[in-house]
Computed example of a mutant assay.
Amino acid sequence: MKLADVAPSVLELWQVIAPIDALRPGGELRTVLLGEPIIATRTDAGLRVVRKAAPDVPMAVLERYGFIWTSFVETPKPLFPLPEYDEPDRRNVVAASFGVAVSAPRAVENFLDMGHFPYVHTDILGAEPHTEVKEYDVEISEDRDEVLATRCRFFQPRAALTATEGQEVEYVYRVPHPYCSVLYKSCPADESRFDVISIFCQPVGEEQIIAHLLLTQVDETSTEAEMRRFQQTIFGQDKPILENQYPKRLPLDPRAETPIRADKSAIAYRRWLSKKGVNYGVIPQQA
């Protein structure tokens, strides 16, 4: 798909392109966004992002949540809020950036799926015989323009690096951006709060992404290297599953794939994408 054919609901958003630390002063970063080669540079004058095809026309740029964001429009819609990032006692750790041969919506949908925990993340996020996905609630919020899944509960042998035993973990899922999702889960270090794990997908192409992972956690004991290693292990288990998805783009037609109860959040997510007119990385619903 050419850039001119990408829906405004995608073009008008901020899109992630790299961790802030990936671009040091005097450095240059070449990457691809929505099929368009772009170049980011950092000089004494600041951060600059341009399309390779239009090097004299700077793009909008933003540094937020540990990452660099850009857009193909002059005034993008505001980036979604993540207030936990600014809480002073939290650890904000850029965990990894993985290249994955899959569409961004497929990656987000996988992030929402609790049903695969016992089979893909065995003895970490799940284990047999604890395979049931219990009833939970999903809503599409018009005010916040996001998908929200609440009352999600799942037994996990090791829910986080700080966990010392298995427990039933409470989850809340937010999808505030077509290609980004934020997960809140029980915090072993403080039962009154949630740890936060975010996936920000950079749509390199319709069937290729860079998945950028952010941890925003209450953890006074683990090193950053340990926190990164734990999350990299989890996503490393997801990567081959994602790359074997077929089709790689996400079908928006509700008849395309058979839904089950565990797919409630995925069904809402697909409906939300369809309503917004998102056409990049998906197979649109036929009229």
Rank of each mutant, 00 (worst) to 15 (best):
E109D: 14
S103R: 02
A53D: 14
Q232P: 00
T131S: 13
Q208N: 14
A149R: 00
V49M: 06
S181L: 05
A4F: 03
E139S: 11
A225S: 13
I209N: 00
K77H: 12
R229W: 03
V196D: 00
F67E: 01
A189I: 01
E84C: 09
T233C: 12
I68C: 07
R90H: 11
V49G: 07
M114W: 05
W14S: 11
M59L: 14
D113V: 06
F235H: 11
E87D: 11
M227Y: 04
F194A: 11
D143N: 13
G277I: 10
V61Q: 12
I20A: 14
I267P: 00
K52S: 15
I68H: 05
A7G: 06
E139V: 10
A7Q: 02
R261C: 08
R255M: 11
L250R: 06
Y171E: 04
E191P: 10
M1V: 12
P178L: 06
E207D: 15
R271K: 15
Q231H: 15
V6D: 00
E165Q: 15
S71A: 15
T216Q: 04
P188Y: 02
E226S: 07
E224V: 11
T216R: 01
A18S: 15
R255L: 13
I267E: 00
T131Q: 09
T164Y: 09
Y85Q: 06
R174Y: 11
V32Q: 13
R91D: 01
L62Q: 06
D113S: 11
Q285H: 09
I197W: 07
L62A: 04
Y65F: 12
L215S: 15
T75Q: 14
P105Y: 01
G35N: 08
E226Y: 01
E146V: 01
G27H: 03
I68K: 06
L125Y: 14
L23W: 05
R153F: 14
F98K: 03
K275N: 14
V172C: 10
M59P: 04
V169N: 04
